[in-house]
Design a protein around this nucleic acid. Structure first.
Lengths: 347, 347
DNA sequence: TTGAAAGCGATACCAT
DNA sequence: ATGGTATCGCTTTCAA
């Protein structure tokens, strides 16, 4: 016999019916121990492997979880993925992963493609899906998680934190430390990065409004905060951080005394570049980052950064997805997992 | 109509037969333009999405590529993955990804699981599969790639480079630079790391044999090279690099004047720790790494490291897999993609 | 270029 | 606890 063995082959060898073999595979406890043993032996002898396509077709359960991330190269999403994989284990799910390269259009195409696998659920990053994508998902009738970021109008389940609030809080931290010429370094301005920038702007706006109310007239220059924003659509890297630091220094004519980098890669690059410019940190220049990568804590001085529970987010996404898939609950309101500012020597 | 539309629904709406719809989906050029248009409209109207399980079952083509990597958290495999994803695009394949946590046993289980999806091909990392896994793969009758590392007895296709040779070459570089008390820092001693260590040992052994032949009697102490090996099964991290540096310094009683780290994470950690110990680099201590991560080139001094074409390996794996799947060629001998030593300030 | 009929391999449902 | 039978949705094969 050359072709791959199927259920029937196993059944014949074991002297039972096909359906009994099927049961051994799915609900072993619903089969008498004696039959089960015979079947298990037959399976081993034949090297039988169940045909997933047939199983999925007949049972209408694909055993697949679809996940779309914006980038494979960004370690941040890896940590989320690890959470997803760890949580998926007990559920007998296979993960099909797509990388949409930060593009909502690519994401839309991927969603269409992945939906053909009839996944049990779908995990997306961010909340900026195209209208058509949202429609696809609504029709699909499967639970969907939008991860990493919060929105008032989630497609379904939403788990994340406010990048606006985090950006604002970090900027307030710099203001509280006395910095008044603060630069924002941004790369690959995806929605979350833009929210961080918006938070940055709001913090400074609030600060200037408070410390220098128009009704009171002029105040000492030092009280007012001067923002410098340098962004690029290039994708983020350590090297780019150094280049952006030079750019902001040029733009501010050397006035800039603190930079808030939209992520830790940029912050590391800024730190390395600042050293070569003989800037003392944090005396001459403060550096703040985002994501709290391992390296940020270990360089000298450590980089102040925003931490968030990425692994846990991934886990929770799967957990809620599976809860919903099993019909336990139908509505979850957006879940804010929060963030925390890790203050280190760089500020 | 509540249930999801199927081929028949589309066919009825378009006024053609189901098979014609199927053809529009798979070989659009084999259908008259007129019918095709009608079908495409019907598909759009109904929001039809093809049932992958049924398609796979009927056609005996799963459209799935299975990939197993040892770790999601190691950025090195991410770059390989990116190569895989980039190459997969034109082939209409979905990637199912498994993480075996560096364990051959987990890998074996994953292989069994993933084979049930009847993937068109399977990409593995390394060459240390269990016997049972090899048997499974041989029976599966699909092309298999063992990636990253070379072996004399590949299961099928083999693409990689010699970690032994790379480890040896890097050590020879340190010897050539005049270092004679060389430490090896190793974490999570997976097979490739062990080969690097073996190369390290061989280089030093060769050196000592050459520069101090037994027949010539004693020579100046400085000519002989003293190796110090510190390894741990803990998984690698920047922080661990610092700890291992301290360990090797303790073991060598401060004699160690160079460390070869089994990867760049450790090397970065060693660099940061060395700075805090007020060691001048490379005068007091040379540091070499492996993998050539971006940060290694940008810290000061830059870390000498071993670069390899990871992205390209991923791409080539898919390319050869698809070539083989389409029956073009049946045998490939192992493909050595090589490595190169990036010499920087740290040595 | 198009269609009819016969599977693909497993599971659900209903008996026994 | 076990088995018979219909069925899932699509593609293959063959014929027109």
């Amino acid at each position: 016999m050359n072709r791959k063995p199927n259920l029937k082959d196993v059944a014949e060898l074991a002297g039972v019916s096909a359906i009994t073999v099927s049961r051994v595979l799915t609900h072993p406890d619903k089969v008498a121990a004696k039959s089960r043993l015979k079947v298990e032996q037959a399976i081993a002898t034949l090297g039988y492997i169940r045909n997933h396509a047939a199983s999925a077709l007949a049972s209408n359960r694909s055993g697949v979880l679809a996940v779309i991330i914006p980038s494979l190269s960004n370690i941040v999403f890896n940590e989320v993925l690890q959470g997803i994989y760890s949580a998926v284990k007990p559920h007998q799910l296979q993960v099909i992963l797509g990388d949409c390269h930060y593009s909502p259009l690519e994401e839309e195409k991927l969603i269409a493609t992945l939906l053909s696998q009839a996944p049990e659920g779908l995990i997306l990053t961010g909340t900026d899906q195209t209208d058509y994508a949202r429609k696809l998902l609504q029709n699909a009738g499967i639970p969907v998680v939008q991860l990493m970021e919060l929105t008032d109008h989630p497609i379904d389940i939403n788990i994340g934190f406010s990048h606006f609030a985090a950006g604002k809080a970090m900027t307030e931290h710099l203001l509280a430390r006395g910095y008044r010429h603060i630069g924002f370094l941004g790369a690959r301005m995806d929605p979350r990065t833009q929210h961080r920038l918006a938070g940055f702007r709001k913090a400074i706006e609030d600060w200037n409004a408070t410390s220098r109310p128009e009704s009171l007239g002029a105040e000492p220059q030092s009280a007012r905060c001067e923002p410098y924003v340098v962004t690029t659509s290039q994708s983020s890297s350590i090297k780019l951080g150094g280049q952006l630091l030079q750019a902001v220094m040029a733009e501010s004519q050397g006035q800039c005394d603190a930079v808030f980098c939209c992520n830790d890669d940029l912050a590391l690059g800024a730190l390395f570049a600042a050293r070569q410019m003989n800037l003392r940190i944090p005396a001459d220049l403060a550096i703040a980052g985002f994501n709290d990568l391992e390296a940020s804590a270990l360089v000298d001085p450590g980089i102040t950064s925003v931490a968030s529970p990425r692994f846990a987010m991934g886990q929770q996404a799967v957990d809620l997805l599976m809860q919903k898939a099993s019909g336990a609950q139908t509505e979850f309101s957006p879940i804010d997992v929060g963030y925390s500012i890790m203050v280190r020597g760089s500020t």
